[in-house]
Design a protein around this nucleic acid. Structure first.
Lengths: 140, 140
DNA sequence: GAAAACTAGTTTAGATATTAAGAATCTCAT
DNA sequence: ATGAGATTCTTAATATCTAAACTAGTTTTC
């Protein structure tokens, strides 16, 4: 068997951790969890999404998402409505409070991202991103 | 703000997920969780480790490790003993049952890994691994 | 040499991950 | 029209994550 440290899943995990070090403090200061932030960002990007699509985009399983949405709704960051055509589907979108949050945090997020990109190297980041995308598009 | 899909943490998460697709079934068949498997692999590589070192290697926080170790011990996969020099430290190591597990699973793990590497490309895998290592070694 | 500061490991509380099972709704062939 | 099968979302049970507080043992400082 390969060496422990050569495990790709572990390398990916550690790399993610190393990246989050740059952003975690900001999220903590604003009492938003990583998963909540991912959900908010997805809804910002897509305006309105069904729960299932949201789960797909965020890489979060439906059962987890149920709870995350419930809490985000309680905190007033997202609103839900039933789809007219299909009563099973729930349509989710951001509230103004969430949009305000983005206005407030975006500059800081961006500057931290730039700090990171500079630290790691723009070119390497491009390369890495490309390799990751290809990996993700792999079908089992 | 960058596009949602360009988020590096998300890309890393999805890449990890895409990779685990190859191995998860094997772990499930043997009733071992991802984290448990990571802990077992680390102990196999290092023979004996303190809880804290183990946490470091596996990228698992101490509080989580407490529970994981407890369950692995109950299942007879690992044993613990107190350090002589420092009564705070716990030394962990694998049992024969764990070593048997490795004997049994290693071939399958290897073949799945090869299938993955071939599918993704050996060179790209090398490249990716290198970039990830550099990322991980980044200090905030 | 004892209080202060530190360290390893655990517990606690709340959030999330994972698998399986359930409830509600929808689709479609009969 | 209708019942089997599929789909969306939720609940349940157990494992893990995360931050903070706590316990016990160790080192440092004066």
């Amino acid at each position: 068997m390969r060496k422990f440290e050569d495990s790709l899943p572990l390398q990916l995990l550690k790399a993610r951790e190393a990246t989050m070090v740059f952003f975690r403090p900001l999220l903590q200061e604003n009492s938003v969890t990583e998963q909540q932030w991912r959900v908010l960002r997805a809804l910002k990007a897509y305006e309105e999404l069904e729960s299932k699509q949201l789960a797909e985009h965020c890489c979060i399983l439906s059962p987890s998402l149920t709870g995350i949405i419930k809490r985000l709704e309680q905190q007033g960051y997202i609103k839900r409505k039933k789809s007219e055509e299909d009563q099973r589907r729930t349509l989710l979108s951001l509230t103004d409070k969430a949009l305000d949050l983005f206005k407030r945090l975006s500059p800081d997020v961006e500057s931290r991202y730039k700090a990171f990109a500079e630290r790691y190297g723009e070119e390497k980041l491009e390369q890495l991103s490309k390799l990751l995308k290809e990996l993700t598009e792999l079908e089992a």
